[in-house]
Design a protein around this nucleic acid. Sequence first.
DNA 1: ATCATACCTGAACAGTTATTCATGTGTTAT
DNA 2: ATAACACATGAATAACTGTTCAGGTATGAT
Lengths: 124, 124
Amino acid sequence: MPMANQSATDASASGAAGALLSVEKAQRMAEFFAVLGDPNRWRIISALALEEQRVGDLAKLVEMSESAVSHQLRVLRNMRLVSYTRQGRNVIYRLQDHHIVNLYRDVSEHLDEPGGDSLEMKPF
Amino acid sequence: MPMANQSATDASASGAAGALLSVEKAQRMAEFFAVLGDPNRWRIISALALEEQRVGDLAKLVEMSESAVSHQLRVLRNMRLVSYTRQGRNVIYRLQDHHIVNLYRDVSEHLDEPGGDSLEMKPF
DNA sequence: ATCATACCTGAACAGTTATTCATGTGTTAT
DNA sequence: ATAACACATGAATAACTGTTCAGGTATGAT
């Protein structure tokens, strides 16, 4: 795929510290993070981090409708964050990779530092 | 800190592997990740990872209007991801915490695996 | 004081997203 | 075969998000 412009945008280079991200790469990063940008998806993930769950149990745990849970599970599936197995009439979902828990921990530390989320910094 | 309900939701416990995330904690996680859920914000971050930048230069680098950049910088500021200094008429922005570059690397490695975003992703 | 430069901000608009509701698919029981 | 159960899916709707546009604020130059 052709690159957008001159030189700074080099999709093949190593990363955020090495070069300006190409639009395509930035897009892929954003898509991944956007999946984790919803509180109910985090609740689902945390429930699955405890142990694998049936959809119905998941819905009760996170206090959402089964339909809403099902829709969100599809999003998580598409990003390969969860996998599932059919067992009779039930479908069991689990985290496809527990590394997501590390991600959680890293960010959690950052958020636990003083000076809150959406509090405005000193204005100009 | 008051808890939402019975027991499984324990905001004080350590993390995603230990208990179901409280609604509040899930909300804060989601807000952080949502900030990283936009491709243009990643382009801005990657530009700042190269070196600190004036707003105008930033706009040219990422090929956005100054206004759009300014709006997005406020989002990054609110999440304490960037800081700024006024120098004459210019305002210089920089990454407040280069730990974000590690975050980028961790996620990037796995998105770069064969298949791509919504097709096939090598597990973490 | 006046003007130009550099950046910020509010409102509006278009595009996106998460939920609900109704329905559809697949499995088990009778 | 029929019914009940567990889950998935499409359409519709409400809420949210990012950009543009039209000013607005702060600084420096003349």
